[in-house]
Every structure is written in C-alpha cells, then in structure tokens.
Amino acid sequence: MSWLDRFSRTKVSGLFRKSDIPEDLWEKCTNCEQMIFHRDLTLNMRVCTHCGFHMHLPPKERFSSLFDDAEFSSMDLPKAPLDPLKFKDRKRYTDRLKEARSSEHKHTDALEVAHGKIGGQEVVVAAFDFSFLGGSMGVAVGNGLINAGKLARELKSPLVVIPSSGGARMQEGALSLMQMARTTVAVDDFKADGLPYIVIFSNPTTGGVTASFAMLGDIAIAEPGAVIGFAGQRVIEETIRQKLPDGFQRSEYLLDHGMVDMVIHRKDLREMLSRIVGILMHNNQDNIKPAGNPTVVGST
C-alpha cells in the first residue's frame, strides 16, 4: 500500500459558487471597520473592498483560491494527544478545543493540508486557520507540517505553507515550544530533496511560528499589510516605552528591511506561485497553462 493511500482524496471544487453565499449579511473590516457585504467580501477573497486590507482567508477558501479550477484533495492529519498538560486558565483547554472544533470547523486543529495543481504543477499547500485558537502551533500543527512535508516529498512536489498565527500554543507549554524544532526538521528534510519550499506570510504571523519554519522559506512572499514579526507590538512598546514607527512589522516594512522577497496581492498569488514553481521545477513553458501577469505590489 502506498503511503499516500492513507489520505482521503475527496475532490472539493467550486467553493465560490454564488448560490452558497448568503445575500443579506454584512461584515466589518478588521482594519478600517467599514461594513462590507458578505457576498462582496467573499467574491473579493476577503480583501476589504474599502481599504484593501487582506482579512483572514480560511484554509478551504484559500485552497480554492490557489489550486487550478479550485480543485484539491484534503489530507487527513494524524490525531495529537488531547490537552497534554491538563491546562486550565479561566477556561479549560479541553473546552477551548471543543469550542474551536464546533460547527464552523470540520477539521481538528489550526492547520489544514491539501494538494492539487497550480498552473499544472502538483503542489502541497498547508494553510493555517487563524480562527482556530489564533492559529496557534501545538503538537497537532507540528504533526500536520511534518506530514505535509512527507506528502510533498512523496509527490516530489513543491511545498507551500501559509502561516496565520499568533505563535506557539501556550496551553501546550514547553511541548509547543518544541514544535519550533520539529517543524524546522520537517521543512529542512523536505528541502534536502531539492524541492522548493515557499512561504506566504498572511496576517498575522508572529512569535514561535515566525521564528521557525516560516522564516526558512526558499522564497518568502507576503500578503499586503500583514503583521509579521517575532515579539508582539504591545510587549515592545512596554519594553522601550515609545511609540512604534508607522507600518512597523507590516509586510512592506519587512520588504524594506530585506526580510521577504515580495509583497503580492491575494488575487495575484495563484499566478505568482504558478510562475515561481514552474521555473524552479524546470517545467517546460509549452506544457503548462499560461500564468497570466501577476501584479507585484511591492518588490525591490
């Protein structure tokens, strides 16, 4: 039995069908706080129609936006031990997990992995779900990334990781800290096969997630306006007791400081990915779909 047979291979397609979208819902932009028609927001890939802010795109919608014809296969991720520390703050961690796993999320933790074609090239994409406990990284997310790396090696395909995370998951204590090392092994073992590892920073990417696998991409792409950094802004302000400069820790700021390769609008990500993996994988131009012409929002 091939290692791959263990994954469910259900095809998901056309998540953006208009009929699924409720007509009468409004949503507030998390940046400019203007009200946006839910339908407009969804059709705009959750980019604010007023200020252009890139709001969090849930993994399934992310996959639909990146894979050719919105077709992909989701990967079943291994189960992680539940609440290893028996952690309790004002709430029990088990209750927080239960809540996070309720109705909205069919998946079991903050990471989802899928594979499919981008510009005709098979690609594995691992996307964080920020709405699941702030996209925080515990043992389950670590396992998910390890498996995503294995799948991509098996498929001999590029690996794309899209973090959106506050960092390590406090409720798993030092175990979550160790995920920084585990995920680094995962992406480095993958890179050792000579395959491209691409990171797309989305808002926000901070803490132990930035300081491990996320900063190790062969190519680092950022969505516009995303907060990307190690220390939290409040902590920095409290430490240095002065106001932070405008645009501090935003994608464009990181571009200026040499920390990412480019800042790309969400609507152009598919084309840019398709172009980059096509070149890095030496795909002959005749064999692939035309990649279109991505607009580079910012690059040096």
Binding site: M215, G229, F230, I236, P245, F248, Q249, H257
Partner: peptide, 11 residues
C-alpha cells in the same frame, strides 16, 4: 523585544 531587533530579523 525591540524595534531594531525586529528590523534586523530576530525571527
């Protein structure tokens, strides 16, 4: 945690 540390790539 500081501005310069972030600018020079702490993560």
């Amino acid at each position: 945690p500081g501005i310069e540390a972030e600018e020079r790539g702490q993560a």
